[in-house]
Amino acid sequence: MLEERTIEREFGWVFFYSSKRYVETGDPAFAVGGNAPLIVDRVTGDIHVTGSAYPVEHYIALYEARPRAPKE
């Protein structure tokens, strides 16, 4: 987990991750391909995989626009 990159929003969090070796060395040989950020819903605990084709803000906007069940 790349804690310093975590985004917190009203709906929950967006978490970023990579391999430990890539974070330590910066060597692209150790990069994780297709490691799309994960959205975790604070109410339900559901985990949603985003994507890597667009900036993370695109996926956040799509998630925020989704119809949501009312909080109990």
Rank of each mutant, 00 (worst) to 15 (best):
M1L: 05
M1W: 03
M1P: 06
L2C: 06
L2M: 11
E3V: 04
E3R: 14
E3A: 14
E4K: 11
E4M: 01
R5A: 03
R5I: 01
T6W: 12
I7N: 05
I7D: 04
E8F: 05
E8K: 09
E8L: 00
E8S: 12
R9Y: 02
E10A: 13
E10P: 01
E10K: 08
G12V: 10
G12E: 11
G12T: 08
W13M: 11
V14Q: 02
F15V: 07
F15S: 02
F15C: 05
F15L: 13
F15I: 08
F16G: 04
F16T: 04
Y17F: 13
Y17W: 12
S18D: 15
S18W: 11
S18R: 14
K20N: 14
R21F: 05
T25P: 00
T25F: 04
D27Y: 05
P28N: 03
P28L: 09
A29K: 09
A29Q: 08
F30G: 02
A31H: 09
A31F: 03
V32D: 12
G33I: 11
G33Q: 14
G33K: 15
G33N: 14
N35P: 01
A36C: 10
A36D: 13
P37V: 09
V40R: 13
D41E: 13
R42W: 10
R42I: 12
V43M: 03
V43A: 09
V43W: 12
V43C: 05
T44D: 05
T44L: 06
G45W: 10
G45N: 12
D46V: 07
D46S: 07
D46K: 12
I47F: 04
H48V: 15
V49W: 11
V49L: 14
V49K: 15
T50F: 04
T50R: 00
T50Y: 02
G51I: 07
G51N: 05
S52N: 11
S52A: 11
S52R: 07
Y54C: 04
Y54G: 00
Y54N: 05
P55A: 13
P55Y: 08
P55K: 06
V56M: 05
H58G: 03
H58K: 13
Y59N: 02
Y59E: 00
L62S: 10
E64D: 15
A65I: 04
R66D: 07
R66K: 14
R68M: 08
A69E: 09
A69H: 02
K71Q: 15
K71I: 15
E72A: 14
E72R: 12
